[in-house]
Amino acid sequence: MIDFIAGNGPWAWIVAGLVLLALELVVPGGFLLWMGISGIITGIVVLVWAIGWPLQWLIFGVLSLVSIALWVRWTRSRPTATDRPHLNRRAEQFIGQEVVLEHAIEQGFGRVALGDTVWRVSGADLPVGHRVRIVGYDGAVLKVEAV
């Protein structure tokens, strides 16, 4: 088997690259895609120039690492486009709204009702029924100021 692979080195790289590309369909994640492309490129390089196995593995390894690193860097630098930017960040959608205090702010904390949820708020001490504007948040605590 090793003699067969050694005798057909370029085609072995190309077939291995295609197998890695096929595996990417089964195990998504992106890494096998770039390793498959690197295997195919290595096979093409070996078709053009006859080089030894250690250099072939070096070419494959370097191409794989560089392409995966560039792909990871590129995907992390791009924001994910979404039609619901505040999904799982509910507090952000309330910034700027004016609401009425349900429970007075005493010692820096009180409560307001927003939709079907009662939120804890922080700010200057204010009585029940006072209008406040949400100006920020800290975790699940909304920061408010008097209107």
Rank of each mutant, 00 (worst) to 15 (best):
F109T: 09
R131W: 01
V141P: 03
G52N: 07
D125N: 12
V132A: 03
D138R: 14
E145N: 03
V62I: 15
L101N: 00
G36N: 06
G17Q: 05
V141M: 05
R89E: 14
G29V: 08
V72C: 07
G136A: 14
G7Y: 04
N88C: 13
T82S: 12
R73V: 12
V46C: 08
L20Q: 05
G7E: 13
V45I: 11
A12F: 13
V141I: 15
G110W: 01
I51N: 10
E24D: 15
Y137H: 15
R76F: 11
N8H: 13
I105V: 06
V147F: 02
A140K: 12
T42F: 01
R73W: 15
V141D: 10
V144N: 00
G110N: 01
L101Y: 00
Q56M: 10
G29D: 13
W34R: 03
T117A: 14
S67N: 07
N88W: 11
V66H: 05
V144W: 00
A12S: 12
I51Q: 12
I59N: 03
G52L: 09
W34E: 05
V46T: 09
L101W: 06
I37A: 07
L20P: 00
V19W: 06
A69H: 13
I134F: 04
A81S: 14
V135H: 05
E106M: 07
R89C: 10
L23K: 00
A16D: 01
R73I: 12
L65D: 00
I44T: 12
V144R: 00
R89V: 13
L126C: 10
V147W: 06
G30T: 08
Q93H: 11
I51D: 13
L126S: 09
R120V: 15
G96N: 10
V46R: 14
